[in-house]
């Protein structure tokens, strides 16, 4: 994981080039901001429906930066939930970030100071975690910070506009924007499948399992947050047993 991968690194700045990584982060933050805008716009509409104002919507998106998490937050506020219920629900729905943070600690240069780690913790969303994991070798945190600055701006702006102007964006545009985030996920998980059949099978198997868990009786009653955690633990665990990574951090060639 920590070695430079010559196949991919040509597209990225070299490690230590903070300026290059920052610029790259701003660039990669844009498609994320675009997708965030659509999702947070819908969240803003939901927030307004439970009586939240634009400032509260802004603070929620700035503080939580979590789509399903914020949706739950809006529902909890709307239902007049108590403090314990709020904490318990927030922990369960956002537990996958714990796994993502664990994974991301291993992408860091061990010399990275604690304050940079604490700042990076704020940046752990599905998308920012995704692009930060896709970087070859150690992660230059300037890359993640830059992408976060751009995408969280889009996230907060979308929420505020959702609260203020509601359904002004045409349904067609909302529908089209709603796949931006999934498009980005594909751009992260599909390319490794070109060089490794194992990675291709892993991704296909994960999608199939996820589909079964949303369609099969009993299994489909599991909340989406728990589904992600359960399947990640099970499938990544099996993959680690079947195909341990080489000392250089890449899976053994198939």
């Amino acid at each position: 994981m920590h070695q430079q991968n010559s196949i991919v690194s040509g597209r990225y700045p070299t490690f230590g080039d903070h300026r290059g990584w920052m610029l790259r982060g701003f660039r990669d933050g844009f498609p994320i901001a675009m997708g965030y805008f659509a999702v947070s716009f819908a969240l803003g509409i939901a927030a307004r429906n439970v009586g939240m104002n634009a400032v509260q919507g802004f603070l929620m998106s700035l503080g939580m930066v979590a789509s399903a998490g914020e949706y739950a937050a809006i529902m909890l506020i709307g239902a007049g939930a108590g403090v314990l219920e709020m904490i318990a629900t927030t922990v369960v729905i956002n537990l996958r970030y714990f796994l993502m943070s664990c994974s991301l600690t291993q992408k860091l240069d061990p010399k990275t100071p604690l304050w940079k780690r604490f700042l990076l913790a704020y940046c752990v969303t599905d998308e920012l975690f995704g692009i930060s994991s896709a970087v070859p070798g150690y992660l230059d945190v300037a890359y993640t910070y830059a992408a976060t600055a751009v995408s969280v701006s889009g996230w907060c702006l979308g929420t505020v506009l959702g609260v203020v102007v509601g359904n002004i964006l045409p349904a067609r545009a909302m529908s089209a924007l709603s796949v931006a985030l999934y498009g980005m996920f594909l751009a992260i998980i599909i390319p490794p499948a070109k060089h490794s059949r194992f990675m291709g099978c892993l991704v296909a198997l994960s999608m199939a399992a996820s589909w079964i868990f949303t369609a099969a009786p009993v299994l489909r009653t599991i909340s989406s947050g728990f589904r992600v955690i359960l399947l990640t633990l099970a499938i990544a665990g099996i993959a680690a047993l079947v195909r341990p990574v080489e000392p250089d951090g890449t899976p053994a060639k198939s």
Binding site: T232, A239, P251
Partner: peptide
């Protein structure tokens, strides 16, 4: 190490489909 290497790919695949 292997488990944490595979985590992002599995998580993102599960979240993408369906």
């Amino acid at each position: 190490r292997s488990f944490l290497y595979y985590v992002p790919y599995v998580t993102l695949a599960v979240m993408t489909f369906p």
